[in-house]
């Protein structure tokens, strides 16, 4: 009977495949208070998902707001994959009549989220008249 001897090329290919599969996967373990003291005022949201892979890596868990003269909004994001993901986000603000509020400081902000990690992004309305908001998430172009 002929013995099957693994060829060096085969071993290398298997190793490379394994490396590709695992990638640079590193995930985050988290611990927090079982019953949080702070109670978030959650916002009912409407989502339009056009990039499902981004939605897996940067999943919107929930949005909460803090009322005040200037509205503060906080979004919880969760990476449901095992790999780090770079993305950009941008807040847009609207007044009570639905018109977009312009601010010179509104910009796309780059963030990274590790595999399995949960992060918060937040913004404060640039004007007291800003009553509504929209958050756009896009995969990093790099």
């Amino acid at each position: 009977m002929k013995m099957l001897v693994p060829q060096p090329k085969l071993i290398l290919a298997a190793g490379a495949g394994l490396l590709l599969l695992t990638g640079c996967a590193t995930t985050v373990n988290t611990v927090e208070r079982a019953t949080p003291v702070g109670e978030r005022q959650m916002v009912n949201d409407k989502r339009i998902i056009t990039d499902s892979s981004l939605n897996r890596a940067v999943r919107i868990v929930g949005i909460n707001e803090t009322a005040g003269e200037f509205l503060k909004v906080q979004v919880e994001l969760l990476n449901t994959t095992r790999s780090m993901k770079s993305f950009n986000y941008r807040f847009e603000w609207f007044d009570a009549t639905g018109n977009q509020v312009y601010s010179p400081i509104t910009t796309a902000i780059s963030r990274q989220i590790e595999g399995g990690e949960s992060i918060f992004i937040s913004a404060v309305a640039p004007l007291a008249t800003a009553k509504d908001f929209r958050i756009k998430l896009i995969e990093s172009t790099r």
């Binding site: 003269e69 200037f70 400081i105 404060v124 309305a125 640039p126």
Partner: peptide
């Protein structure tokens, strides 16, 4: 940087 600064100033001082 300006976005972070203004957000912090509004939240910490004005609001």
């Amino acid at each position: 940087a300006a976005d972070a600064m203004v957000g912090s100033l509004i939240e910490g001082v004005i609001n």
